[in-house]
Design a protein around this nucleic acid. Sequence first.
DNA 1: CGAAAAGTAGACCGTTTTAGTCGGGTATTG
DNA 2: CAATACCCGACTAAAACGGTCTACTTTTCG
Lengths: 156, 156
Amino acid sequence: MRLTTKGRYAVTAMLDLALHGEAGPVSVVDVCERQGIPGAYLEQIFARLRRAGCIDSVRGPGGGYVLSQSLEQISISDILVAVGEGVDATRCHGAADCQDGTQCMTHDLWSELSDQIDGFLRRITLASLVRRVGATGSGNHRARERVAELIHATNL
Amino acid sequence: MRLTTKGRYAVTAMLDLALHGEAGPVSVVDVCERQGIPGAYLEQIFARLRRAGCIDSVRGPGGGYVLSQSLEQISISDILVAVGEGVDATRCHGAADCQDGTQCMTHDLWSELSDQIDGFLRRITLASLVRRVGATGSGNHRARERVAELIHATNL
DNA sequence: CGAAAAGTAGACCGTTTTAGTCGGGTATTG
DNA sequence: CAATACCCGACTAAAACGGTCTACTTTTCG
């Protein structure tokens, strides 16, 4: 199972807005310089997020993007769905016609899996992400060590 | 997030072995006719499963493939990992060097997500799948209705 | 022994998706 | 009116996906 960079970029960018958006709109350039995301690509992603209603845009000098809801209201699931990276592990995209018009043996399994993953992502909001990043400090030594441990422990 | 057909085929094929393997080895042709999987492709998948130690092969007439462990011992996670479809939502594949050699802001998130999904898949074994398929009957009306409800409820 | 049944191996290939780039817009501000 | 910033659609190289095809080797049965 893979997550594409588009989905990751979208979440990263939204988190960046959450962290730096208090003083007003945040420009694409600001975000892509801080997060190392190609500017032209990030524009596309922001466009999708806007059309989905996750963010609002302000044009002209001093403009940029602003979160359109509170941090508690925006979940990771919302963001991924907005950029077309919503979870779907089924072959038939939920239609249950996987094999000759009827559902295949493993349809329930994939359906349930999709549900589990989405549930997890729905419970994580920008608010909880901000709390976490704030607590460990982004990119510092302590954080890196903690993650290294985690990876080692879970054999990821 | 997407799951490829290779992963789905692998699980389906393993489940087929679990359901029809009691009388001896099951041939590729048998499995692909029952499950609607292209034969030549399924052969590739079985080859990976064998190299990973999930199944054993028996050559010559009357040969085929046999599960190499008990139904309780084989998890969906094992199968997916065997065919190279293991869960990894991080960009850096666990190395924590996502951004300029240090970990990016969202590394923990993806790492934890991968962990959650894998945990879920590890708890489901061929044994539990066989029980489930037996209980609902594959492809019957009741099962399809249940799934339709689920899909509607979760907006998948 | 020889034919047929089956697995083994790996090169190959068309299509789709990914991960962007590019070029030209349009609104807003100073 | 010029600079800043969003807006939008077309385009593209590379990778991944979902297979196919060919040419083996091993084993059983008659």
